[in-house]
């Protein structure tokens, strides 16, 4: 366990240190949420209707942005060789990397999501549900995104390839997350949408590391 804790600390320091992706994703999210607000014009009513949905789309795009760093840099500088020859199995390495990605990138994004939603005229009563849903959805983004990041290892223009692989996998969290929030704001039953969001993200956490480890082994060979 000690070495996995060391890996976790390393991942956090890489995400928040020089050239890390966490701040970049957060700034990108702020930028895209602002652009979407401008693009929809000033009329409050139509904007209010799509506010939570739009903030989720921005969230998915911002989560996508930092995925390229998840494995690609370790692959290029040989660190993945070292990581696959430590005591813990490669599956655990992938789990820790995605969990650190979630904590360093998706959690700050989840804090920013309610701010963006309210700026887009979402009802203030949605602040806490938006935060909670974005936090859970972020797990799905990090762990399904990791699969795309691992599969695209070694290809040039990996970032574009990651987007093509991963965006379909991002659809369920966006549908269930934004759908649940929309139902909540209209006073409709919302529980099942959030249950599906949670189930999808838990499945991604449970199965993602195995897919990632297989893809990483393939890239190293």
């Amino acid at each position: 366990m000690g070495s996995l804790a060391a890996l976790f600390r390393r991942e956090l320091s890489l995400a928040w240190g020089r050239g890390g992706g966490a701040l970049l994703a957060l700034s990108f999210y702020a930028g895209i949420a602002t652009l979407l607000t401008f693009g929809m014009g000033a009329a409050p009513e139509p904007m209010k209707a799509v506010a939570t949905g739009t903030s989720w789309v921005a969230l998915a795009l911002a989560a996508l942005l930092s995925l390229e760093r998840l494995f690609e840099r370790d692959y290029e500088d040989g660190a993945l060789d070292l990581l696959s020859l430590g005591g813990p199995a490669l599956e655990s390495v992938c789990f820790v990397k995605c969990f650190a990605q979630w904590l360093s990138t998706a959690a700050p994004l989840a804090l920013a999501a309610p701010v963006a939603a309210v700026a887009m005229r979402a009802d203030p009563s949605l602040v806490i549900p938006t935060f909670a849903a974005a936090l859970v959805g972020g797990l799905g983004f990090s762990f399904t995104g990791g699969i795309g990041a691992a599969l695209s290892l070694g290809s040039k223009r990996g970032g574009v390839l990651i987007a093509v692989i991963v965006l379909p996998l991002f659809a369920p969290p966006v549908i269930f997350g934004a759908g649940g929030l929309a139902a909540l704001s209209e006073g409709l039953p919302w529980e099942s949408a959030f249950a599906f969001l949670g189930a999808y993200c838990m499945a991604a956490v449970a199965l993602g590391p195995f897919a990632m480890a297989a893809a990483v082994r393939n890239a190293l060979s």
Binding site: R10, S13, L14, G17, R18, G19, G20, R73, D74, D77, G78, A79, L80, D81, L82, L83, L85
Partner: peptide, 15 residues
């Protein structure tokens, strides 16, 4: 049981 030291050292430039 083994150490592998290749051409690349896996050290992170920013740390």
């Amino acid at each position: 049981g083994l150490h592998f030291l290749g051409h690349q050292d896996g050290l992170k430039g920013g740390r």
